[in-house]
Design a protein around this nucleic acid. Structure first.
Length: 199
DNA sequence: CACACGATGCGCT
DNA sequence: GCGCATCGTGTGG
C-alpha cells in the first residue's frame, strides 16, 4: 500500500525535497481516469537569481511559492506550456521544486507524449498529467484528486547536474535525475560518471 | 497602458 | 542547430 506524502514530507529545503521526490508517484484524477507516473527529473528553485521568487520579492504570480509546503505552483512558459512545481520550505519562505520529467505513465492514451510512456520535459509532464494553469495553488495535502506517493524501495542512481533553460545562476548544480530513465529531458554524461547509488 | 520576455517543445535545415 | 508559436506576467511610463 503506497504511502501518500503529507505536509511534513514537503517541509524541507527545495534541494532536499527535490531529491526526495525522485521516484515518487504523481497521481491525478482527470475526468474518470486516474493518471499515475513516476518522478524522474527535478530542479530546485529557492533564493537564487533564476527563481521566480528571486530576492524573496512577492508578486501575484509567485505568491503561492510563499505558501504551505506541498502546494502546487503551475506557471505558463512561453505562452504555450504549463510547468508543475511543488512548494517547499515552511510557509513564508519562497521556494519550489520543478518537476521536469516523468516515466511509467499510466494508463496509456493520447495524453502520453512518448511511446515509452515517458514525458521528458516540464511542459510534457503537465500535458501527460492533464494539469493546466487552472490547477495552480492546489494542495497535494488533502486534495482527493491530486497527490504524491512515496517511492518504491530499491536502489537507483541519482545524477546531480546543472539546471536547464535558464540564463541566471547557471552554475548551481540544482537538477537531479534518475540515471537511465526515458523521462529525463537532457542527460549530463560527465555527471553520470560520478553518480552515486541510493536506495 | 504598452511592451519585452520567458524554469519549452517542435519542426525544419 | 535554429526559428518560432503564443500569452501571462512584471515593469516602466
Amino acid at each position: 500500500m503506497p504511502q501518500r506524502l503529507d505536509r511534513h514530507d514537503f517541509n524541507h529545503s527545495a534541494r532536499e525535497l527535490a531529491v526526495a521526490l525522485l521516484g515518487c508517484r504523481i497521481v491525478h484524477r482527470v475526468g474518470g481516469e486516474l493518471r499515475r507516473a513516476r518522478i524522474v527529473e527535478v530542479e530546485a528553485y529557492a533564493d537564487d537569481a533564476a527563481s521566480h521568487s528571486a530576492g524573496r520579492k512577492r508578486t501575484p504570480r509567485n505568491s503561492v511559492m510563499f505558501g504551505a509546503p506541498g502546494m502546487v505552483y503551475i506557471y505558463l512558459s512561453y505562452g504555450v506550456h504549463c510547468c508543475l512545481n511543488v512548494v517547499a520550505e515552511p510557509e513564508g519562505i519562497p521556494s519550489a521544486v520543478l518537476i521536469r520529467g516523468i516515466d511509467e505513465i499510466e494508463p496509456a492514451g493520447p495524453h502520453v507524449p512518448r511511446a515509452n510512456q515517458a514525458a521528458p520535459g516540464p511542459g510534457l509532464v503537465c500535458r501527460a498529467l492533464g494539469l493546466t494553469l487552472a490547477d495552480n495553488r492546489r494542495d497535494l495535502v488533502g486534495d482527493p484528486n491530486l497527490w504524491f506517493e512515496a517511492p518504491d524501495a530499491g536502489e537507483r542512481s541519482v545524477v546531480t547536474s546543472r539546471r536547464i533553460g535558464i540564463s541566471k545562476a547557471v552554475d548551481l548544480p540544482w537538477r537531479w535525475y534518475l540515471q537511465g530513465s526515458p523521462g529525463v529531458s537532457k542527460r549530463d554524461r560527465a555527471a553520470e560518471l560520478a553518480a552515486p547509488r541510493r536506495g
